[in-house]
């Protein structure tokens, strides 16, 4: 496969890979490194790329794994959600900016749930595609997505009632 052919395949994926890594890592340079790591891995598999059913899913799986490795290395991996008591912290109710509240809450989510929100609402993957990328059952994806969205929109519902 020539460089041009490779570029034609990966060019539409660049914004997704970079956006995914940037939003999870909060660091543009690290996101660019992860992007290059992902492309390097795809380049090594370039002979098989055309046969891959969903290249975007493959690219996101590689990116997700690289991000998890880095987040674990930096000791920022969140396994469990913050409990109910901690949810109603002063900062949540002090801020009237709903968008800011969602942003703050997103960082408090378990890392896997952050990734599921990212893949669903930012990248537009279906639950079954997310299952394949995250190595989860579709039902597990739905449960985690539901928990994450409820957590993120809790304050919004409070405002609405």
């Amino acid at each position: 496969m020539s460089e041009k052919e490779f570029w034609d395949i990966i060019a539409p994926l660049n914004p997704s890979i970079l956006g995914f890594a940037f939003r999870l890592l909060n660091d543009q340079e690290k996101a660019k490194d992860i992007h290059q790591d992902t492309l390097e891995k795809l380049w090594k598999r370039r002979r098989k790329l055309k046969k891959e059913g969903n290249i975007k899913s493959l690219a996101m799986t590689i990116t997700k794994n690289k991000c998890i490795d880095l987040i674990r290395l930096e000791g920022r991996y969140i396994d469990r959600s913050i409990n109910e008591l901690e949810l109603h912290t002063k900062q949540d109710f002090e801020s009237k900016d709903l968008i800011h509240q969602i942003k703050v809450r997103m960082k408090q989510l378990p890392t896997k749930q952050q990734m599921i929100i990212e893949l669903k609402d930012f990248q537009g993957f279906s639950n079954s595609e997310i299952g394949a990328i995250m190595d989860m059952t579709v039902n597990n994806v739905r449960v985690n997505l539901s928990r994450a969205r409820k957590f993120l929109t809790e304050q919004l519902r409070h405002e609405w009632q």
Binding site: F22, R23, K32, L98, I102, L156
Partner: peptide, 15 residues
């Protein structure tokens, strides 16, 4: 506000 957050974040993190 949720969808607004998604749209704004996408714009802010576009590399």
């Amino acid at each position: 506000a949720y969808f607004l957050w998604v749209d704004r974040t996408k714009n802010d993190t576009d590399i």
